[in-house]
Simulated scan of single mutants.
Amino acid sequence: MDAVVWTAVGSLTVWLWLLLGQGFFWRTDLRLPPRREPADWPSVCVVVPARDEAGVLPASLPTLLAQDYPGRAEVFLVDDGSSDGTGELARELARAHGGLPLTVDSPGEPPAGWTGKLWAVRHGIALARTREPVYLLLTDADIAHAPDSLRTLVAAAHTGGFDLVSQMARLRVESVWERLVVPAFVYFFAQLYPFRWIAVRGGRTAAAAGGCVLLRADAAERARIPDAVRHAVIDDVALARAVKRAGGHIWLGLAERVDSVRPYPRLRDLWRMVARSAYAQLRHNPLLLLGTVLGLALVYLVPPLALVAGLVVGSAGAAAAGGLAWLLMTVTYLPMLRYYRQPRWLAPLLPVTAFLYLLMTVDSAVQHYRGRGAAWKGRTYAHPGTVLDER
């Protein structure tokens, strides 16, 4: 039991450090920073890459067209080779709902070295630049915005002098698996990229949430967006890093009224969402994969196992260290569950969810080495910069 005790103590030490030394990642009170409305509202172009999004577009696109924005704004939807009539549906929705002007266009198939989404974003930004906007809003086709979303984003960027303001859209949590997996997804993301560190000028931490990114057009040009990140599977984080490296001031926080309408009702849907990019996050490095697996086991699996083992064999040290670590884990997860309006009894189940994420990460690596890479919407990217297969 000595090894179990010391392992449990190690896990507890990590949790004490995470609680106090990781940018208070577990707090969910970081919303749009203080803002005041500008006297003259800058022009904005909204760029929406869309591939086979006919299922979600009726719930998302009308919310963009209905933006209550005092300045000049228009929407560019880039149809990335859809086979389900996404482009025509977008035109029909614009005719039915009115609102902001909508342009629908298609760039054709992406060349080697580009992901399909970023090739579509590149085309959309090129169209937008003909209007000479001050800001670009990059948003996904499954994101629904409150009527004042664009207004508050621009006011926050203008007031704080930010080159990039991003909100992590509230993901859907309706099915059993969504309730178990989705809040943990955001919790783990915040643990990797503490939001409070992201806004620090000159700091190394940079991230954004691809569903909602307001970006100054001149900052995008300085950072060579999207060309500089053209092969990135995790494009939102890569984009934020490029902007920050170019001297940009960035901000990321949780959204109140920006929501994803994409459903993930089954475990396999969520599994595919996580596994398609998990190994890319580890830069396709086997040593990083091993370290991640061991780290997840130490941080999330050891506490409950040590508690049970300590109680079974009568080891007070193992039970106490494991129990305290599990308690800290549970307490830090509660704010995220509250944010997602989920019951508190889900908090002690975080080790189960972490184990699922561990398996998804390993599966992501397995798929990579089997040549399937980051498969999404009929395209497979086996390695950054390489397009192996398009179905």
Rank of each mutant, 00 (worst) to 15 (best):
D259P: 00
D259Q: 07
D259A: 01
S260Q: 13
S260G: 15
S260R: 05
S260N: 14
S260C: 12
S260Y: 02
V261M: 05
V261P: 00
V261L: 09
V261A: 01
V261R: 13
V261W: 02
V261H: 01
V261E: 05
R262W: 10
R262Q: 13
R262T: 06
R262N: 08
R262P: 00
R262L: 13
P263N: 07
P263C: 08
P263Q: 09
P263V: 06
P263W: 09
Y264A: 09
Y264S: 08
Y264F: 15
Y264T: 12
P265S: 09
P265M: 05
P265E: 07
R266D: 09
L267V: 12
L267H: 04
L267Q: 06
L267E: 08
L267G: 04
L267N: 03
R268I: 10
R268G: 01
R268N: 06
R268T: 12
D269S: 08
L270R: 02
L270N: 07
L270Q: 11
W271E: 00
W271A: 10
W271I: 00
W271K: 02
W271Y: 06
W271C: 00
W271R: 07
R272L: 07
R272G: 02
R272I: 01
R272W: 09
M273K: 13
M273L: 14
M273H: 15
M273T: 04
M273E: 15
M273P: 00
V274H: 14
A275N: 07
A275S: 15
A275R: 11
R276W: 01
R276I: 01
S277M: 05
S277W: 02
S277V: 03
A278I: 02
A278G: 04
A278P: 01
A278E: 09
Y279D: 02
Y279Q: 03
Y279C: 02
A280H: 15
A280L: 03
A280N: 14
A280C: 06
Q281N: 14
Q281E: 15
Q281G: 13
Q281D: 15
L282G: 06
L282V: 02
L282W: 05
R283I: 01
R283N: 08
R283S: 13
R283M: 10
H284L: 14
H284Q: 08
N285H: 12
N285V: 00
N285S: 14
N285Q: 05
P286I: 11
P286W: 11
P286H: 10
P286E: 12
L287E: 06
L287I: 09
L287A: 13
L288N: 10
L288V: 00
L289P: 01
L289A: 03
L290P: 04
L290E: 03
L290C: 08
L290A: 15
G291I: 03
G291H: 05
G291D: 04
T292V: 01
T292A: 13
T292P: 00
V293P: 02
V293Y: 03
V293N: 03
L294N: 00
L294V: 07
L294T: 02
L294G: 01
L294S: 01
G295E: 05
G295S: 10
G295L: 11
L296Y: 14
L296M: 14
L296P: 02
L296N: 08
L296F: 15
